[in-house]
Amino acid sequence: MENQKRVKEFYDEYGVDNLVVIVGAAEGESAGLAAETVGLGDPTFAGVLAGVSLKLPCYHICEPEIKDEVDADVYDEQVGMMEMVLDVDDIVEEMQAIRDEVAEA
């Protein structure tokens, strides 16, 4: 809830072209839920983004688009362990599906 509020505030301040949301959820489903919330609106209708479609691009920290942007040593130190633990393929698939949906909306 609190995160939705903060994303909305950043959106109002910087606009859709200057904002990318990066999530670190442990499972594809929960990562996808976050992407859906900031892209199409809160599907649970519980937070400030209920019915609000911000169309913000959203990536998981383990997706190659983001990983390639980060200094390799820093990435290894902060994310390397979780990358080994997470089902990255499932996460990428889920995130891409939501981005496709947002693009079509």
Partner: peptide, 19 residues
């Protein structure tokens, strides 16, 4: 929806061991 908490911890500890 909170997953298997002990298993998640063991995976992380093991992954750290690999590193």
């Amino acid at each position: 929806g909170a997953g298997d908490v002990p298993e998640a911890n063991y995976k992380m500890i093991g992954a750290l061991g690999v590193k």
